[in-house]
Design a protein around this nucleic acid. Structure first.
Length: 432
DNA sequence: TCTGGGGTCCTAGGACCC
DNA sequence: TCTGGGGTCCTAGGACCC
């Protein structure tokens, strides 16, 4: 038996914990650069604001419906996520943190009425953290996902599903005719693993609802997609094909790409931005305990402008796998020397660390031949410790430094909330 | 004026090998 | 006239997820 626990409108809910005045109001959280809506309160959804809606298209709601917009505060959401996952972990023996706001639980061996313990967990999370969540329970991960979808939809839009399914939905506990009705009312595209492309292909083959999919022959359906679709169909039919992954595998690549607040044409600014991006990516690399063998570097113009497009990238192989920021920053320099063209209005740039391997793996002998390596490693350690203790960016490479006001590439964050739980200066005060 | 970012997995096709 | 077959590995691109 599997469960999926999922924080409702998670980023908005995180903000509301510290801003109770935002409850009941339409709220959106904007992406980096205040580009588009990436989280919406139920009230904002009711206004018709779509996921990913560009900010400039929806900002009129601020006047028309008292919409509140907030710039994304990922430090806050990440910290709230850790707390949420810690609370949910106590429910069962195995937990897979699937994304920032949801986790799968393997509930095999958990005694008692699962629906009742799910309700209790919801109350516990509500009391300890103040984040509302929905829980779906099913015989497979796909069914748990589906049950979660039903629980969320039943809560938000009464009428589609019976109201008693709101917030917690235990698929196996439902009578079969009700399961049938729910599957029939659920579009195939709401099933985990069916995206836009597959939805069209399934529709062309006459499969429109979750019920159509659940009744399909898993072997036959394979020719419409890949083995993934076959797996999805089997999971809908109750055969578990996807396990709960207890310990997440190390990342295969570490990406840091950003759109600029304004377009950038000067080489110096690009160098500065990419040095900062590489610094962030390499810090994550060290946290993971890996070294990178290659560095991908890309720069490009905006895909939303009707101007000549300029998308270029290059992969720089490193002489030996490294987790040294000076090495990856130098790689971005080398890359820019190849990629950069004067006069092009660059809108976005990025760094991807590739070919990742565990740090310990085969490093010793090579490192001994490089006299500078032990010192560099110590330098990076000190850097990480200082930044950990005194705040990110306390100590950095000169190439990543720029005077205040000299970062045209810095992203826009006009509506950023304080670091309530991650910054000493921003901790809220309680008044008696 | 103004449209995010970070991932995973699968498949097809090419290069290469014997 | 007429030119095999089987396998591995890698990469690019597509689809999906949140």
């Amino acid at each position: 038996v599997f469960a999926l626990v999922d924080g409702n409108n998670f980023y908005v809910s995180c903000e509301r914990v510290f801003r109770p005045d935002l409850r009941g109001k339409p709220v959106v959280v904007l992406s980096n650069n205040d580009g588009c809506a990436i989280a919406r309160s139920n009230e904002a959804k009711a206004l018709g604001i779509a996921m990913g809606a560009p900010w400039y298209q929806i900002r009129h709601w601020v006047h028309d419906a008292a919409l509140v917009a907030l710039s994304a505060n990922f430090a806050l959401y990440g910290d709230m996520s850790d707390r949420l996952m810690g609370l949910v972990a106590q429910w069962g023996p195995q937990q897979e943190v699937y994304s920032i706001d949801e986790c799968f639980m393997d509930l095999r061996g958990v005694p008692g009425d699962l629906r009742a313990s799910a309700q209790a967990l919801r109350r516990h999370v509500g009391q300890c953290l103040g984040i509302p969540c929905c829980i779906g329970i099913g015989a497979t991960k796909t069914l748990a996902k589906l049950a979660n979808h039903v629980a969320k939809t039943a809560e938000r839009t009464p009428g589609v599903y019976p109201p008693e399914l709101a917030q917690v939905c235990h698929w196996q506990a439902l009578p079969e005719p009700l399961q049938h009705r729910i599957l029939e009312a659920t579009p195939a595209s709401a099933v985990w693993g069916v995206g836009r492309r597959l939805r069209k292909q399934l529709a062309a083959a006459g499969l429109h609802t979750a019920l159509d999919l659940a009744r399909a022959d898993p072997v036959w359906v394979r020719h419409l997609g890949s083995v993934m679709l076959e797996r999805t169909v089997r999971e809908l039919q109750g055969t578990a094909c996807i396990a709960v992954e207890d310990a997440p595998a190390a990342r295969q690549g570490i990406t840091y790409t950003r759109s600029f607040g304004r377009t950038v044409t000067a080489l110096g600014h690009l160098q500065n931005a990419l040095a900062v991006f590489a610094t962030h990516a390499t810090q994550r690399l060290r946290q993971q305990g890996s070294v990178a063998g290659q560095v991908w570097v890309g720069i490009r113009t905006s895909v939303f402008r009707n101007t000549p497009q300029h998308h270029r990238s290059v992969v720089i192989p490193l002489r030996r796998p490294s987790d040294d920021t000076t090495v990856t920053v130098q790689a971005t320099r080398d890359a820019l020397a190849v990629l950069y063209q004067p006069g092009v209005p660059y809108a976005k740039a990025g760094v991807i660390l590739l070919d990742l391997q565990p740090r310990s793996h085969g490093q010793g002998e090579l490192a001994l031949q490089d006299d500078a390596a032990p010192d560099r490693r110590a330098l990076m350690q000190v850097l990480d410790q200082l930044n950990q203790r005194y705040g990110s960016g306390t100590v950095q490479l000169g190439s990543g430094f720029s005077m205040p006001g000299q970062r045209p590439w810095a992203m826009k964050q006009a509506y950023r909330s304080p670091g309530y739980t991650t910054c000493w200066a921003d901790i809220p005060t309680a008044h008696a």
